[in-house]
Design a protein around this nucleic acid. Structure first.
Length: 811
RNA sequence: GCCGAGGUGGCGGAAUUGGCAGACGCGACGGACUUAAAAUCCGUUGGGAGUAAUCCCAUAAGGGUUCGAGCCCCUUCCUCGGCACCA
């Protein structure tokens, strides 16, 4: 489908001109309201595919629209460059990750420039360059100094393929690695953590941000706040150092129904409590659990298994002794790693008790309960029974009463448990920012002094994954002197999770060239927070949660004065092809370049926006592009037409009305990311203008005004075409410095309306009347219609009038 | 299983949030132009009945509220996302 113009020539011409004139360079401007519109920066995988364009082109349209509305718009771009994929690809291709990454950056920058976006390239960031990661390290030190970074030995998620630890957020629900789908195992390792749990409650507060409910829900679920109680069960008689097993429960009201205790197989007390006769059985169960993959362990519908360890603990509320089991449905990582078994009121405990023939004691009466045995766990509300002094209380007040009583006796109390764990940031890989810490035999853990940053990633390290950080084998890197005592010391050899780099890049954009500081406070103050963030929903509990944590932490440290990084968030959908998600293995990946070569960036931009609602994604269908090509051709033809002869006033008024109606519609649709309907309105307007010209039904003033507005409205979507035609019409360069057209509400309103006349809700006639018609007049017109009378068997019982829309006669 | 979003022509999707269902576009069919094709332009395009004006049916299925339901309520079915032994 040929275009009327040569996109390659026109687009590169204007891109060169815009670059030469620094048209999109951004400065703080006190005279204009600021607008920070950010798109998630791409990972340096090597090539932009159409999904990147789908994320970037519409957000550029929105940024351009904001510019035309008079905002001083910051819409930057950069590259997320550290991380495993780069390292793995580099290994595979026998190239150094730095070289591989920078080649990709170059190629992707070239591709990005072809979009024709308003990016200010002077602000570009590449997270793997020392200029950037120096400040990533510096920020690590600030968190460390604030007590928000700590080192701890803990069971960590280990990916055997990636040969590194993973944060909990990077392990998929099925227990596999987010990146390579390998089953994740556990390893006990000394690792660095960020204290994100300290912010759990604040992270649950979404009241000051305007984000999709879906994302807020996902974050809430991830944080997983549960209100409940911690209860102490006695094990004094075993003469151990520890005199109790603590459990977490959300149902302290059911504590009298405890008939057994379950410990996670990895629970530290297991080895001490297991009686000699049970030792073999317990050992083999623990080993079996360990062998089983996370995938099996996490499947909920699996039959419950466990073994009795021979020991008992005391329920201090009623003095009863209950047997202790280990079972893998108790998770070491949640609560206290111990569960009180209340089979009558918990489905899992019920299943377990059934299987191992343990007593089931009802302590919350179901409605109409007469003392009979339960056939399934009752988890609803009810009155407390079989519960000593608490009998007769409703279970909600019972919770409070039990907690109060336990607190008085010092055997437990109210508490809150979270699902979220601290963020593990150590990675045993090469391609990341080195953690700026030193281990000294006499001084212990010592931070690298700020003036010694960056701790450079040595270029000549062997970067094959071995399960230990490649930096471990680089003597020159590892051996250093202690910054405190100057004695011999070893550097931390792990690198940081790349999500650390992307947790603050939006701050760097706002403050490029900040010299000897990470950013300038006055620039952050001017631009931040980000007004509109756009990107994929796949980052809901990783990047988006980490970035929020980071901002809150830096605020508390005193580096910032706002609470949330991204005021508004919008998730675009996913582009598929051949009815499937694009992937290399399926061979259905759409590369934008070939389309840009043939039909140009403007057409690709237009097509992506026209596919459907932005948040729904859609399928890339080659034929669909034709619609955009035809439309642009029609616009091209319109602009080339010479002025029409003066038309009749009434018809011109029709065009003026269309113009103002279209401006209003397009303005409102662009504002709320409804690109598909904005383009539909522009197409309709284009079609109208073509018809009006053919009919000579428009005067030259209205015509010129219409063409001018059409080009301005087209400018965000098709920046090159609009600029070209703008110049052809003789208007001042650049169209991208002109304001968006405004509309006149009177002209946008309909002068005449078609009223639908219904009888009993069925359309029976249409009458064209003045928009200013009164209710009585409208009803009279409707009732006097011949057609209507034919459908009315009886006189009207009721007449409903909706101004501008319809008259419904109930007969 | 739980939470969220959704189900509208051959296809992508519109529908001012309770008021003409199918805007806009793709595709298809017919016509004009052409030696021919492409491109372009014009017309038709949810189903059914009728020569026609027009009428009937139709927004996953069934029921309800309403003068009026794609939109609100109830039930059922399907699709897609997320969560899922979290005590």
């Amino acid at each position: 489908m040929p275009l009327k113009y040569d996109p390659a020539q026109i687009e590169s011409k204007w891109q060169d001109r815009w670059a030469a004139d620094a048209l999109y360079r951004v400065h703080e401007d006190p005279d204009k309201p600021k607008w920070y519109e950010l798109t998630m920066f791409p990972y340096t995988s090597g090539n932009l595919h159409i999904g990147h364009w789908y994320a970037m082109a519409p957000s550029d349209v929105h940024a351009r629209f904001r510019r035309m509305q008079g905002y001083n718009v910051l819409h930057p771009m950069g590259f997320d460059a550290f991380g495993l994929p780069a390292e793995n690809a580099a290994i595979k291709n026998g190239i150094h990750p730095h070289i591989w990454t920078m080649r990709n950056v170059e190629n992707m920058r070239r591709q990005l420039k072809r979009i024709g976006a308003v990016y200010d390239w002077d602000r570009e960031v590449v997270t793997s360059l020392p200029d950037y990661y120096k400040w990533t390290q510096w920020l690590f030190l600030q968190l460390f100094n604030a007590g928000l970074a700590y080192r701890n030995k803990a069971p960590a998620n280990w990916c055997p393929t990636c040969q590194t630890t993973l944060a909990n957020e990077q392990v998929l629900p099925d227990g596999t690695c987010e990146r390579c789908s390998t089953a994740v195992t556990r390893r006990d390792l000394e690792q660095w953590f960020f204290r994100i749990t300290k912010y759990a409650d604040e992270l649950l507060d979404f009241s000051s941000i305007d984000w999709p409910d879906r994302i807020n829900t996902m974050q809430s679920n991830w944080i997983g706040r549960s209100q409940g109680a911690e209860i102490s069960f006695g094990i004094e008689e075993y003469g151990l150092e520890t005199k109790e097993i603590r459990v977490f429960t959300t149902r302290p009201d059911t504590v009298f129904g405890v008939t057994f205790m379950v410990l996670a197989p990895e629970h530290p007390l297991v080895s001490q409590l297991t009686t000699p006769d049970k030792s073999d059985e317990v050992q083999s169960y623990i080993e079996e659990t360990r062998r089983r993959s996370e995938i099996e362990r996490l499947s909920a519908d699996k039959e419950k298994t466990g073994v009795f360890i021979g020991a008992y603990c005391t329920n201090r509320l009623n003095g009863e002794k209950v047997p202790i089991f280990i079972a893998d449905y108790a998770l070491l990582t949640y609560g206290t790693g111990a569960v009180m078994g209340v089979p009558a009121h918990d489905e899992r405990d019920f299943a377990y008790a059934r299987k191992y023939d343990l007593p089931i004691r009802t302590v919350i009466a179901p409605p109409g309960w007469g003392g009979e045995d339960l056939v399934e766990a009752y988890t609803g509300p009810g009155e407390m029974v079989n519960s000593g002094e608490f009998v007769g209380l409703g279970n909600e007040e019972g919770k409070l009463a039990v907690i109060k009583s336990m607190e008085e006796q010092g055997i437990g109390g109210g508490t809150i448990s979270y699902r979220i764990r601290d963020w593990l940031i150590s990675r045993q890989r090469y391609w990341g920012a080195p953690i700026p810490m030193v281990y000294c035999n006499s001084c212990g853990i010592v931070p690298v002094p700020e003036e010694d940053l960056p701790v450079l990633l040595p270029e000549d390290a062997e970067f094959r994954p071995t399960g230990e950080s490649p930096l471990t084998f680089h003597e020159a890197f590892v051996n250093t002197s202690c910054p405190k005592c100057e004695g011999p010391a070893r550097r931390e050899t792990d690198t940081m999770d790349t999500f650390m780099c992307s947790s603050w890049y939006f701050l760097k954009y706002a403050s490029p060239n900040s010299g000897d500081s990470a950013f300038r406070p006055e620039q952050l103050k001017h631009w931040l927070p980000v007004d509109q963030y756009t990107g994929g929903a796949e980052h809901a509990v990783m990047h988006l949660l980490y970035a929020r944590f980071f901002v809150k932490a830096l605020r508390d440290i005193g580096l910032l004065d706002f609470d949330e990084p991204f005021v508004r968030l919008y998730n675009q959908g996913i582009i598929i092809s051949d009815r499937q998600k694009m992937s290399k293995s399926r061979g259905n990946v759409i590369t934008p370049d070939e389309y840009v070569d043939t039909v140009g960036a403007d057409v690709v931009r237009g097509y992506l926006m026209f596919i459907g609602p932005w948040d729904q994604g859609g399928e890339w269908v080659d034929q669909g592009i034709n619609g955009i090509v035809r439309w642009y051709n029609r616009v091209w033809d319109l602009v080339e037409k010479s002025d029409p002869q003066l038309g009749k006033g009434k018809s011109s008024r029709q065009t003026a009305h269309m113009l103002h109606k279209t401006v209003k519609k397009v303005y409102q649709d662009l504002d709320r990311f409804h690109f598909n309907t904005a383009l539909a309105a522009l197409m309709e307007f284009t079609n109208h203008l073509g018809r009006a010209w053919d009919e000579g039904a428009v005067d030259s003033e209205t015509w010129n005004e219409s063409i001018k507005a059409l080009l301005l409205m087209l400018a965000p979507t098709a920046p090159h075409l609009a600029e070209e035609l703008w110049a052809a019409r003789g208007y001042d360069y650049s169209i991208h410095n002109w304001p968006f057209p405004t509309w006149d509400e009177t002209l946008a309103a309909e002068e005449e309306v078609t009223l639908v006349v219904q009888v009993n809700g069925k359309v029976r006639d249409r009458v064209t009347v003045s928009a200013a018609i009164t209710e009585d007049e409208a009803k009279e017109v409707a009732l006097s219609s011949e057609r209507i009378r034919a459908f009315m068997k009886n006189g009207p019982r009721k007449v409903v009038y909706v101004p501008g829309r319809l008259v419904n006669i109930v007969a």
